[in-house]
């Protein structure tokens, strides 16, 4: 009934993640800036205010989110290829690299601070994800116990 919801393999998944993050940023930005535009406009001009605020600001937010998500996925694939294993450390290292990469314009100090903060945020998110899955008792597939040892063929 439900289609194939699994992730694409690594190079193609960067496009997917960029698109997903852009969509989230654009839709979230639309909602946020429409409320802001509505509230900051005089009565009678409210609809105009909403339209102009959304037109001006929402694409920027979408682009920012998309840049973050696309870069994160890019670094995630890179780290997976370098480390050759898949574990939660990949996300944390990718977050660290994204934080640094998106702050390049600010110089070394800003890059370092931004990288550390982003790494910590992702570590917190990984911990929260593990906590949520533990609390909702979603066990990944438990391994079947092997039968009696067979001789190698």
């Amino acid at each position: 009934m439900s289609g194939d919801h699994s992730r694409d393999p690594c190079p193609m998944v960067i496009v997917n993640d960029f698109g997903g993050a852009f969509a989230m940023g654009a839709i979230g930005g639309t909602i946020w800036h429409s409320v802001k535009g509505f509230r900051n406009s005089p009565v009678g001009e409210r609809w105009q205010g909403v339209k102009s605020a959304v037109r001006l600001r929402a694409p920027t937010l979408g682009g920012n989110f998309g840049a973050w998500g696309g870069m994160f996925s890019f670094f995630d694939c890179t780290v997976k290829a370098v480390r050759k294993t898949e574990d939660p450390w990949n996300s944390i290292i990718s977050g660290f690299l994204v934080g640094g990469a998106l702050a390049v314009r600010g110089g070394w100090k800003h890059m370092r601070n931004s990288a550390i903060i982003c790494g910590f945020i992702l570590a917190g998110m990984e911990g929260a994800g593990i906590a949520m899955s533990r609390m909702m008792a979603e066990n990944p597939v438990a391994p079947a116990l092997p039968e009696a040892p067979l001789a190698a063929a």
Binding site: H5, S6, E86, D87, P88, P140, V141, A142, P143
Partner: peptide, 16 residues
């Protein structure tokens, strides 16, 4: 690890 159907899972979780 094992394949999940979760699109948002970055890593395939290890079964243990």
């Amino acid at each position: 690890g094992e394949q999940t159907n979760n699109r948002w899972a970055h890593n395939r979780p290890i079964a243990s």
